[in-house]
Design a protein around this nucleic acid. Structure first.
Lengths: 137, 137
DNA sequence: CTAAGGTCTGTAGGAGATACAGGCTCAAGG
DNA sequence: CCTTGAGCCTGTATCTCCTACAGACCTTAG
């Protein structure tokens, strides 16, 4: 009896649910990042929660600086159930190193920025030694 | 007497020192992310360590998903010594929030990936519940 | 039944690089 | 000194990743 969640989503619903641009949804389908969705009798695309989940992941990954190619690699882990465990492990390990490096970079930038925010008095000319350190993080 | 470091760098030296593509160096100059460098008598660009430092920062920031516009904002903090401390504080605060959000996202992704690496036995078909979790981070 | 809003396809345009062509210059070795 | 290879110059073309728009069609609330 529980079919509350079975209302199909239109393209604009998917876009709104994820914050993705409407046209980008279509683009991701043509380049294979998102699957071609089922169509209604009149040819309208129809999505569900799995699409929302996946597209959110893609968008977050893009924002974090991963290329579509890299995201394809990560999604491959999810999609291709026929890969061996060793394959999955290798890809995951590569991405893990990448992610850890990014976290380290961002953490150093964070330190400089929060020091800047804390030290700045809000008055006149800033003490720029702090901000200069940004280039050396 | 210490002028060991005063050998000027060619464009390719800068590219190699930073890992930046040769043509991208020129591109960043035309769009104003990097300053127009001094030229030799014959018009050759000539760089120094400050350029290396700055370009490395730009590249790391790009890799972390910042747009050129955002990077321009950060570099503005470094470049424009005439800004008030309040200006600097405001810009830094905005970027700080952004950076912290990125760190949070990456940390969640990291958890899933390291779990995957740890759990995968390296044998046959993976236990995919872990990898599936990637989409929900 | 109509107006508003949403869908379709195709194509154009912008940001951020990247590549290549044609010609010039520099520095090291013979 | 001269060659040769590597690098420089500019301008332009091409690639990725989107984003926007046009023209035509569909759906649904009032």
């Amino acid at each position: 009896m529980d079919n509350r969640s079975v209302k199909p989503l239109r393209r604009i619903d998917l876009a709104r649910a994820t914050g993705c641009n409407l046209e980008t949804v279509r683009y991701y389908e043509t380049v294979g990042i998102m699957p071609d969705p089922p169509r209604s009798a009149k040819g309208y695309r129809s999505y569900d929660d799995a699409h929302v989940r996946r597209l959110k992941f893609v968008m977050r990954s893009r924002d974090l600086g991963f290329t579509l190619e890299e995201i394809r690699g990560l999604l491959g882990l999810v999609d291709d159930r026929s890969q061996t465990c060793a394959d999955v492990q290798a890809v995951a390990e590569g991405h893990l190193k990448d992610v850890q490096a990014k976290i380290a970079d961002l953490t150093r930038i964070e330190r400089v920025l929060s020091e800047t925010v804390a030290r700045c008095t809000g008055d006149a000319v800033p003490e720029c030694a702090v901000i200069d350190a940004l280039l050396d993080v």
